[in-house]
């Protein structure tokens, strides 16, 4: 048990990082990474939602399969995620207002983050059990956080860099992300166990 949890965690954070090797969650990754603080906030919010939705969607999927409604899974998952994000938003607003204001508009945007739906679909595809699903969700979110924080801190220094005018803005950010992806490829040969 411990071994599989360890394999999944290391895989999700380093080897098959959600952003750098699976391209899941690129929109918020490129969108909210201009400042390190917002990047950290976004990372925490995504990790939280990914862990929670992995747990709930595991139960929902079991339910759908037992009712022979497996083909409705995509629709059910996205509804669960949308409701969950809304719920988390209301909960934070009531009980932890400081975190709520810090996350701001990023919270509702998590609904359309493909990393969240992606992790849920991958849990089903990989036949993970309940604990493995939750671990994959949380560590996948941590991988997202590592990526977005690294990227934001590199991007901070891009304003002092000298690059062709046409690469201004988005293209140079993509090149930077590509170089980080290249660095993360170094982990791909790692064997565990």
């Amino acid at each position: 048990m411990l071994e599989s949890v360890l394999t999944i965690s290391l895989g999700a954070i380093l080897i098959n990082n959600f952003i750098f090797s699976q391209f899941l969650g690129c929109c918020p990754f490129l969108g909210c990474s201009t400042k390190i603080d917002t990047a950290v906030g976004m990372g925490i919010a995504v990790t939280f939602v990914m862990g929670l939705s992995s747990a709930i969607c595991y139960v929902v999927n079991e339910l759908l399969v037992s009712l022979e409604l497996g083909y409705m899974s995509t629709l059910a998952f996205i509804l669960v995620i949308a409701v969950l994000v809304q719920f988390v938003e209301m909960f934070l607003k009531k009980s932890i207002p400081s975190l709520y204001t810090a996350l701001g508009i990023y919270l509702p945007l998590i609904t359309t983050n493909c990393a969240v739906l992606g992790v849920v679909l991958l849990n089903v595809q990989n036949n993970y059990n309940f604990i493995e699903s939750v671990v994959y969700g949380v560590t996948g979110g941590l991988g997202f956080m590592v990526a977005i924080v690294l990227f934001a801190s590199v991007r901070d220094r891009l304003q002092f860099a000298d690059y062709p005018e046409s690469f201004e803005g988005f293209p140079i950010a993509l090149v930077t992300a590509g170089l980080l992806a290249l660095a993360f490829m170094g982990f791909s040969g790692m064997q565990i166990g």
Partner: peptide
């Protein structure tokens, strides 16, 4: 082979976006 890997995806899209920005400018 690197272009088939994730790095290539980022790099190719960056080049296309840069080309587009150049053309628009």
């Amino acid at each position: 082979t690197i272009l088939i890997m994730p790095f290539g995806g980022f790099l190719t899209l960056a080049s296309l976006l840069a080309a587009m920005q150049y053309a628009l400018r």
